[in-house]
Simulated assay, not measured.
Amino acid sequence: MADIWLMRHGAYEGHRPGYHAPFDAMLTGEGREQVRRSLPLPDGIVGIVTSPVPRARQTTGLIARLTGLPIVATSRLLAEWHAPSIILGRTRDAYSPAYRAWREKRLANPSLRFEDGESLTDLHTRAGHCADFLHHNAQQHGPLLAVSHKILLGMLTRLQEGPTAFTSAASAPWPFTERRLFTTRQGCWDVQQTK
């Protein structure tokens, strides 16, 4: 099986702990520099797949330009957790009481959605489809770099834990532009930290 490397995008405008970035948040100058410092890529990578979210697309575009690698696919499967619109651009101290109440119930009922956001079950299901998408593209193209977002990457690496892995995916560190090797063992996805 061809290697799949998972990478978080570079730093973006407005980032701070507990912040849910708007869809259109762009890379900062430091984010672009992080991407440059993340090179060279591991040997053998032949293409890049990416989230359509601008900060991931910018990361991918810069890598493609600096390495000459093609972008072989852009997929919404790699997009970050679709947080409810009401919290985008906000931190925990600005959450509405209704959203805070949903947060208290979401682990007990992972299929429960809040307004226009993805439920934890929705996200887990999408992460499973994303793993299949990555595997298919790696079989078709060869070793790949997949550029995505912290929570989605965390869910990919914890698929066997189910929808409630959201909590650990959100709290576990995954620094900007860090890469991890995504492998499969007996039908179960696993991840190895490398950088």
Rank of each mutant, 00 (worst) to 15 (best):
T91D: 05
Y95K: 10
P54R: 11
L78M: 13
A108K: 15
R106E: 15
G47W: 06
S51V: 03
L69A: 07
G47E: 10
R55T: 06
A73C: 05
R113I: 08
Y99M: 06
S96C: 00
T60Y: 02
R76C: 07
T91N: 11
T59Q: 12
P54V: 07
R76G: 14
L123I: 10
I63R: 05
T60I: 05
L107T: 14
P84R: 03
A98P: 01
R57T: 11
R92F: 11
F114W: 09
T59S: 11
A83P: 03
L120V: 01
V46W: 02
G89W: 09
G68M: 00
R55Q: 07
G61E: 15
L77T: 04
T91M: 04
E118W: 09
T59W: 10
S51W: 00
I87D: 02
I86Q: 02
L69K: 13
G89R: 08
P84M: 07
E118I: 10
L66K: 14
E118P: 05
I71A: 08
V49A: 12
Q58M: 13
Y95V: 06
P97Q: 15
A98S: 13
G47A: 03
P52M: 02
A98T: 08
I87K: 09
S111L: 04
H82M: 08
I48G: 06
T91C: 14
D116H: 03
A94N: 09
L69Y: 12
S119F: 08
A101R: 13
I87N: 05
V46E: 09
L107N: 14
E118N: 05
S96G: 09
D93R: 09
A83N: 15
G89H: 07
I63D: 02
A98M: 10
P70Y: 06
R92P: 00
R103N: 14
G61M: 04
A94S: 11
R55H: 08
A64Q: 03
L107G: 07
V49C: 09
R65V: 05
R103Q: 15
A73F: 03
S75R: 06
L123A: 14
R55C: 12
F114D: 03
V53Y: 14
I71M: 13
A79P: 02
S85H: 07
E80I: 10
A94H: 15
F114K: 00
P110M: 08
G68F: 00
W102A: 08
A56F: 02
L62I: 11
I86F: 00
P110D: 08
A108W: 12
A108T: 13
L69V: 06
A73Q: 04
R65W: 08
W102V: 11
L123P: 00
E104K: 15
N109G: 05
L107D: 09
